[in-house]
């Protein structure tokens, strides 16, 4: 049922630049610009010869408004979410950003820290403090 077609990073970047509108990522929307914007994410020529943790393809969306986002907004929680849904969402985000917290890119690491702080605040609010 599933066909797996090989795509390299460079190919996927080419495809992205040609595609009219990239699909909206299912992941969270981290807070602030990290690295390059989507239009300037061409990897450095030697980028794959080195350890690449947090490569430029992590085109996190930028914060559009000047108003700081709340921890709930950062975690993309909606008021209608049940406790189970919030818990599942926080687990997914924790796994994702705990990993990004080890990035060699200080910007990605800083963003991961912000997200981890937001995740903890949301957890404490909805599930109580330790």
């Amino acid at each position: 049922m599933f066909k797996k077609i090989l795509q390299s990073l460079s190919k996927s970047q080419q495809a992205k630049s040609q595609a009219p509108v990239p699909a909206k990522p299912s992941g969270p929307l981290p807070v602030a610009p990290v690295g390059a914007s989507a239009s300037s994410v061409t990897p450095k020529p030697n980028v794959l010869e080195r350890v690449v943790i947090g490569t430029p393809q992590k085109d996190y969306p930028t914060t559009s408004s000047s108003k700081p986002r709340t921890p709930e907004e950062l975690c993309e929680l909606t008021p209608k979410m049940s406790k189970e849904q919030i818990s599942a969402r926080l687990k997914l985000l924790y796994r994702r950003f705990n990993r990004s917290a080890s990035s060699l890119d200080p910007k990605i690491r800083a963003e991961a820290e912000k997200m981890l702080n937001a995740i903890v605040l949301v957890r404490e609010k909805h599930f109580g403090e330790l």
Partner: peptide, 19 residues
């Protein structure tokens, strides 16, 4: 043929490392 080697559990390519 170019094959990127990824490290990480996430389905989303933005959240894995290309090593």
């Amino acid at each position: 043929i170019e094959v990127d080697i990824t490290q990480g559990e996430d389905d989303d390519p933005r959240y894995v490392d290309i090593i």
